[in-house]
Design a protein around this nucleic acid. Sequence first.
DNA 1: CATTAAAGTTTGGTGTACCAAACAAATCCG
DNA 2: CGGATTTGTTTGGTACACCAAACTTTAATG
Lengths: 167, 167
Amino acid sequence: MSEQETGLSESLEDYLETILALEKENKVARVKDIAEMMGVLRGSVSGALKSLGEKGLVNYEPYSFITLTPKGEAIAKEIHRRHEVIHDFLANVLQLDPEEAQETACRMEHTMNRAAVDRLVKFIEYIHYCPRTGRDWIEAFVGFYSKTPPEPEQCQRCLKEWEDRRT
Amino acid sequence: MSEQETGLSESLEDYLETILALEKENKVARVKDIAEMMGVLRGSVSGALKSLGEKGLVNYEPYSFITLTPKGEAIAKEIHRRHEVIHDFLANVLQLDPEEAQETACRMEHTMNRAAVDRLVKFIEYIHYCPRTGRDWIEAFVGFYSKTPPEPEQCQRCLKEWEDRRT
DNA sequence: CATTAAAGTTTGGTGTACCAAACAAATCCG
DNA sequence: CGGATTTGTTTGGTACACCAAACTTTAATG
C-alpha cells in the first residue's frame, strides 16, 4: 500500500498497465507476455495476478486468460493517461530525448496523482492556447537551454520577430 | 538498488535528506530526531544507518552522533535540490496548493534524474526570462485552468492589455 | 554517584516483490 | 492419439523496509 490514490503498489499498477496494453494488442493477456513485457519471470506474474484477482482488479483463474475487471480497467487507463501526459510534457515541452522521457514518465506516473496530472494537462493546453506562447515559443526554448544565457538585446530581437510574424 | 543514479532506494535517499536537514538545524543528527522527522521507529533508523554507514555515506558508530560523509552530503544535497526545483514548479508554475505540492515533490524527487531536473530548472528560468512570458503570464494561468476554455476574443483582449503594459 | 529516564540497538516477525527451479497443465503436431 | 514443447504454477529462498518490544548504553539529576 505505498501508492497514489489507487491504494496499489507501483508494481501492481505496472501490472495493470501492462495487461491493458496486451488486451489492446491481443484480446487477452497471457502470463508469458506480461512477464516478457515487464522483464520479470513467469512465477512473479502468477503471484501478482493472485493479488490483483483478490482485489477484484483482474479476472483470473489459474491457467485462464487474463482480463481486467471494470475496476481494474479504470485504474489501468488512469495510470496510462498519466504516463502519456507526463511523457508529452517531458518530450515535447522540456524536450528531453525520447528514451529518457519514456523512462522518466514510467517512474513519474506513480508519483503524480490525478489532480497534479490534470493541472499539468491544463498547463500544456495553456501553452498552446495562449497567443503569447504556443509552438514557436516552445521551439525557442531549445535555444535557451542549449546556449549560454541570452543577451537582453537578443530577446528583444526575438520578440520583434515574433511581433512581425503576428501581423 | 531501485533508484535513480544514486544507486540508493527511495528510503535511503530520504534518510540522507533528513540527516542533511538535521545537520543544518542542529550540528549533528540524532536517531530519535531522524525517526520523528520520518515517521518511523528508532529501530528502523538504526538499520538504515548501518546500511548507509557500510556504503560510506554517513559517519556512524553505534551510539555516536551521525554526520554525513562528503559522498553522503553530495547525494543529500542533490536530492534536496531536486525537491526544491520540483516543488517550485508544482507550487509556483502549476500552482498546486501548498500541501499537495509538498507531498508530490517528496515523491517526485526520487523519480527525476539530474538531467531532467536540470532541464526543468532551465524551463522555469525560460518562463521568467522570455519577455513573452514571465510573472503575469503565469498568473494568468489561474484564469485558464479555473474557468471554462476562454473565448478567442478574450485572449485577444488579454493580449492587447499585455502589449499596452509593455509600452 | 547511583538511580532513573531517555536514547539507541537488537531480535523476531510482517508484507512485498522478486528469482530459481521443480512441478503441473495445456497445447501442438507428427 | 500421445509424446514433446510451451505455458503456467508452486515452493523455497533472498532482499528490503518496516514494526513491536525486549534490551543496553548513555545522560541527566536529586
